[in-house]
Design a protein around this nucleic acid. Structure first.
Lengths: 193, 193
DNA sequence: CGTCTATTTGAATGTACTCAAAAGCGGTGG
DNA sequence: CCACCGCTTTTGAGTACATTCAAATAGACG
C-alpha cells in the first residue's frame, strides 16, 4: 500500500527505517468512488492528498455552469486545494474522482509536526513544488502561445498514457475549449491523415 | 541594501544574527539597466534572483516573433528561470529589465549549501513556492474562465500599483491579447463610463 | 431495454486577430 | 530648446478561429 508513495519520496530524499515508519503512521488511507467528491468548493480542506490508484480532476464552475478543469491527478501525483490548505479559507476548486481511487491523506497539523521533526520533508515538498511550478508555468505559456489544435497535440504527446482514460469532454475542458471544438479538431486530423 | 530581502524572509522564518550574516554573505548584488537581459533563453542560469528595486519581465518569443510575457517581477519579488535553475538545462524564457534594477543573486551551489547548513531555508522556499503555485493556478483559471476584458479588469484590481509602470503593450502581452485589442477594450470602457 | 450522457455535425454568431495606416509620445542629438 | 526618429497607441476594415444553439447519433450504465 505504501510502495508508490515511498518511491515517490525517495526521488528527492532518503529516509531511515524509523523515519519511514513515522511517515507512514500519519497517512490516512481513503478510497473514493467514481464521481465522488474529495473536496467541494466552499469546504475547508486541510489535507495533502497522494493518489495511489485511480484519477481525479480539479475544476471550477463558472456563472453559466460551465466546468473548467484546472488539472488532473493520476496515480503517483499529489493533489488537493493548496489555497485552502495553506490559508484555512474555503476551497476555491472542486476535486472529484474520475475513476475509483485509493488515496493517502495527510492532515495539516501532522504535516506541520513532521516538518519540525524531520526537516527533510521541508526539502521534499520544496522540490515537489518546484517541479509543479515549472509544469504550471509551461502550461500558461502553452495556453498563450498555441492554438486549440496545437494544445491538443501537445497534450497527446505529453500524456499519451492518460488520453484513453479521459473523456473528450474532460480533455476539452482541460484545454480550455468546448467539446464541440475538440470533436471538430479530431475530425480534421483524421481527414488529413 | 538587505532590508527588503530580510523582511521578505522574516515573513516565514526567523533568523539568528549569525544566520542573517551567513545568508547576506552569499548574496551577489547586481544592477541592470532598462532593457538589459538578466537571462536569455538558451543560456544556463543557475541563480535565484531577488528584486530589490525596479521591475523585470519573464517572456517567450514565438515563431512569428511575438513576445508573450509569462510574468512580471517587481521589488520584493523573486524571479529567474526555475527550469534552468533546477535542471541545469538552457533557460526557456528571456528575463529582462523594464526599469533600471537592483538585484540580489544567489548561486545554486551556495543555495544548496545553505539548505544543508540552515534547513530553515528549505522551509522558506517551500512556503514561497506554495504561494507562487497558488498564484499560478489562479492565473490559469482566470485565463480559462474570463474574457479579455474581464482579465484586464482583474489585472487592474489585483495590481493597481503596477499598472502605471507598465506599457499597454506589456500588459496586453501578459493578458495574452494583442496591443490593438487592449486599446479597444480601454476605449469601450471609457465610452461607457 | 430504456434512460442519460457523450459525441458528432451543421449553421449562424462573435470575439479577438491580422494588416495597414495615422496619431501620439519620448528620448536623443544637433 | 527644438526637430527628428523610433516606438507605442489608436483606429479601421476584413478575416479566422472558436463559440453558441440545435439536433441527430452513438455509447454507457443501471
Amino acid at each position: 500500500m505504501y510502495d508508490l508513495i515511498l518511491k515517490n519520496i525517495a526521488r528527492f530524499i532518503t529516509l531511515t527505517p524509523a523515519e519511514t515508519e513515522r511517515f507512514t503512521s500519519i497517512l490516512k488511507p481513503r478510497s473514493l468512488r467514481r464521481r465522488q467528491y474529495l473536496v467541494q468548493a466552499g469546504d475547508v480542506f486541510r489535507q495533502e492528498c497522494f493518489v495511489n490508484k485511480g484519477s481525479l480532476r480539479i475544476y471550477q464552475v463558472d456563472d453559466s455552469g460551465q466546468e473548467r478543469i484546472i488539472n488532473f491527478a493520476f496515480e503517483g501525483w499529489w493533489t488537493g486545494d493548496m489555497y485552502s490548505f495553506l490559508s484555512g479559507q474555503p476551497a476555491i476548486y472542486h476535486v472529484d474522482a474520475l475513476e475509483d481511487c485509493e488515496l493517502l491523506l495527510i492532515g495539516k497539523e501532522q504535516l506541520e509536526q513532521l516538518y519540525i521533526d524531520i526537516p527533510k520533508f521541508d526539502r521534499f515538498y520544496r522540490i515537489l513544488l518546484q517541479n509543479a511550478y515549472i509544469a504550471m508555468q509551461r502550461r500558461i505559456s502553452d495556453n498563450m502561445m498555441l492554438s486549440a489544435e496545437e494544445r491538443y497535440l501537445q497534450f497527446l504527446e505529453r500524456y499519451p498514457q492518460f488520453e484513453q482514460r479521459l473523456s473528450q469532454k474532460h480533455i476539452a475542458s482541460y484545454l480550455g475549449i468546448t467539446p464541440e471544438s475538440l470533436s471538430r479538431i479530431r475530425r480534421h486530423r483524421l481527414n488529413r491523415s
